[in-house]
């Protein structure tokens, strides 16, 4: 999992985004034990303190939790992950519609374009 970073944006915010996608897409599954901060830092090639900051943020969003002395785990509550997925999907959809609006296409047209695209 080699990540690329944009140096113009705080690294911890980018880490947070990558981690959210890993949670939504099930790279790390509900209830699964996460690698340690150190392991993450080495894999992602980032500073452990920055990684720690991103994980703390995920924890404050209840997406992960710390089991005393045992490390960090993904939440056992699938609903929390589903909600995150939903929010993420809405954000992506909104940005699509905004882009289409900029070139003068309304919602109905935009949907028509979507339907015409083969995945």
């Amino acid at each position: 999992m080699e990540l690329t970073f944009d140096n113009n944006i705080p690294i911890y915010i980018q880490l947070l985004e990558y981690m959210k996608i890993y949670l939504i897409s099930g790279v790390f599954k509900c209830g699964e034990k996460l690698p340690s901060v150190r392991e993450f830092a080495i894999t992602f090639k980032v500073n452990p303190n920055t990684m720690q900051k991103a994980l703390a943020e995920l924890e404050s969003m209840n997406l992960i939790y710390t089991e005393r002395t045992n490390g960090k785990y993904v939440t056992k509550d699938q609903k929390v992950i589903n909600k995150l997925k939903d929010e993420y999907a809405i954000t992506l959809a909104k940005s699509y519609f905004q882009g289409m609006k900029r070139i003068g296409l309304g919602k109905a047209d935009s949907i028509r374009y979507l339907e015409g695209i083969d995945e």
Partner: peptide
Amino acid sequence: DADKLRNKEKSSIDE
């Protein structure tokens, strides 16, 4: 702090 500076200036440390 590196990230705080990026956030404040909206650009990379290099920039």
